[in-house]
Design a protein around this nucleic acid. Structure first.
Lengths: 255, 255
DNA sequence: CGAGCAATTGAACGCTGTCAACCCGAGTGG
DNA sequence: CCACTCGGGTTGACAGCGTTCAATTGCTCG
């Protein structure tokens, strides 16, 4: 209904299929077929990409920005069940309606494929279906991890875990290694962060300020935190160092 | 290491492939190939089927009993991230190690397939990979639903939701329609129920006893509850009637 | 400059986890 | 047959974490 977002033909942003985690593992031929289907869409922060229980007319992957997958209760309570960062796939195949709402948490550029066309391609390309299956499996793993976090950890533990995840995902900016490499940029607002961590903005703020007073992090601004004492951050998170080492991430990539 | 469980050749329990949700959608040919791979395994309550971070040597589906998928923190806190009831699939393809522990919550009979053989079959049978993809997608939906429950609902709300889910899954026993049809059998112990609902046995007990005092349920024994007032149970759960469809009899008074 | 939003801070209440005791049925062994 | 043990389940008292309500600050935008 609302057409605030823009749809561009290919060519504009030259949809970065190569940087999509699913596409990256495909053969050149399949990737070419995918590229033919690709359309770029841009959304402003707050706009809805796919509505909860709404029709899924397209799927795709994030080029830039952040999408949130969220579910809402009849009484209004809502929870973010997943964040989608650049290269992540969104949408669902073989299903008509989306079980979650997908919204732009920031201004966002997406690389989209018409769902039925994508499904048709799936039928022909075994390797593509293969990749999609692996992608959904990883999403399931992430969901299980988050269930553990939501059900057993305190708010401060969750915040610590979230910061470590961000630190793992955001490869340190070019040239930064020691102190500067510990700067974590939070790509979303406190409100979304709270909804993702299953708490409130107030409790979230208290946790962050508390960690700052303890000298664990330093607050540069609302979106940027410097990890001053990573050891204590790890201890607070309740995880072992192995859960956030860059090496463990690369091992999982292989299918 | 522990070989308490028993492995039987086919024929014994005549692995009920037809009652497996994934297998049911397959063609006769594919089903036959699957049946050739099938081996029956039996586990006693408490035994481990697949260890967390352990090798996945086989996959399969539940014939009878209940499996729990659980994750454990370094400090010992643990959370059940999913229950597997008869006809549900367990295990994971294209992955060497299991991200969750899979344990028998009750005495259990499984229908198992060697994982590599199963994967080889997947490569040949598009429809099977198709079904597995759909199965994992549904698991993901369930995980998202549960995240919403864990993060936003109170313990009593979770209990109500859980009972309604059980009521939906367990088709009413033969011949029972009205009052008797409202008897929900809880297939697991309080301890597992608490771990699944992200709470403690004490809080769980209090919630159930409270609902009993309010005349919403009647406690027959620890494993069997009668739903006396389904309307209030639905109201407590925070869901609309549509979320638990088969019980749409409630709305029928108008026509 | 005022409106509006994001973020923070303070105070008080309440849900729920923790610790403890208790009940009860099922084994178990004398 | 009884005493004992053990595990599952229930109940009570209590403290604490976190939500809720409320107020304040700082910033952007019109």
């Amino acid at each position: 209904m609302d057409a605030h977002h823009t749809i561009l033909p290919i060519g504009e942003a030259r949809c970065a299929s190569v940087s999509c985690s699913v596409c990256a593992a495909l053969s050149a031929g399949t990737r070419l077929e995918l590229a033919r289907l690709a359309r770029t869409r841009k959304y402003r922060a707050g706009e809805t990409v796919l509505a909860e229980s709404g029709e899924i007319s397209f799927v795709g992957n994030v080029v830039s920005g952040v999408l949130r997958m969220q579910k809402t209760f009849p009484d209004g309570r809502q929870q973010i069940v997943g964040l989608l960062l650049p290269s992540d796939m969104f949408g669902r195949v073989y299903t008509d309606t989306s079980p979650v709402a997908i919204e732009a948490a920031t201004d966002t550029v997406l690389c989209c494929y018409n769902r039925t066309s994508f499904e048709a391609l799936l039928e022909r390309c075994l390797e593509l279906e293969h990749q999609v299956l692996i992608s959904v499996s990883h999403e399931l793993d992430a969901a299980h991890d988050w269930m553990l976090l939501l059900a057993t950890q305190t708010v401060t533990e969750r915040v610590a875990t979230f910061l470590l995840i961000l630190r793992k995902k955001n490869p340190r900016p070019s040239g930064c290694e020691f102190r500067n490499g510990a700067i974590v940029s939070v790509p979303i607002a406190r409100k979304d962060m709270a909804a993702y961590l299953g708490t409130t903005v107030e409790s979230l703020s208290r946790s962050i300020q508390h960690m700052a007073r303890c000298g664990i992090v330093r607050i540069i601004d609302a979106q940027r935190l410097e990890v001053v004492n990573q050891r204590r951050l790890l201890a607070i998170s309740g995880h072992g160092p192995e859960d956030f080492e860059p090496s463990s991430m690369q091992l999982r990539r292989a299918g």
